[in-house]
């Protein structure tokens, strides 16, 4: 398992780390038992992501995907931000090892939750609900790995 240079760059020098004190929306996903937790805070200006920060407990890929998602989302409309897919995140990083693909779900889910948190706080309809993998009680972030390592 080898990380791309871009993954190592975002892991070693993560962008937008921290917590926005007066955040308009907060998303927190993951579980320390699974080994990764992400918290994302956003400032919203005119339905666009004006500012964004993250904190992540997790492996190299979890930190790198969190970092790149904040870069991708900054300046996007809320609708664009919640439409970012895990494949786009992986592509933006120059690829992820197969065993790490689930890490990009952590990042996209965190962002979706932050956007919905903002919308709900404004008395508006959430737009990402139903597409957040971590909301599914049966969600298994490693499902794809099971498929790959399917028993003979």
């Amino acid at each position: 398992m080898i990380y791309s240079d871009k993954v190592m760059d975002h892991f070693g020098n993560p962008r937008n780390v921290g917590v926005l004190e007066d955040a308009d929306g907060t998303g927190e996903v993951g579980n320390p038992v699974c080994g990764d937790v992400m918290k994302i805070t956003i400032k919203v200006d005119d339905d666009r992501i004006g500012d964004i920060r993250f904190q992540t407990l997790g492996c190299g890929a979890a930190i790198a995907t969190s970092s790149i998602v904040t870069e991708m989302a900054k300046g996007m409309t809320l609708a664009e931000a919640v439409a970012i897919t895990k494949s786009q995140v992986a592509e933006e990083l120059g690829g992820l090892p197969p065993a790490k693909m689930h890490c990009s779900v952590l990042a996209t889910d965190g962002l979706k939750k932050a956007v919905d948190d903002y919308l709900v706080s404004q008395g508006r309809e959430p737009i990402a609900v139903g597409t957040i993998a971590h909301d599914d009680p049966d969600f298994d972030p490693h499902a794809e790995e099971h498929d790959e390592a399917c028993e003979v």
Partner: peptide, 23 residues
Amino acid sequence: VEGEAMLLHLDAAGIAVSTGSAC
């Protein structure tokens, strides 16, 4: 802390160790 992240940072500092993290 998560073990793999710790291991990668230590690797960048020239140190080779192991972790039992799932990742």
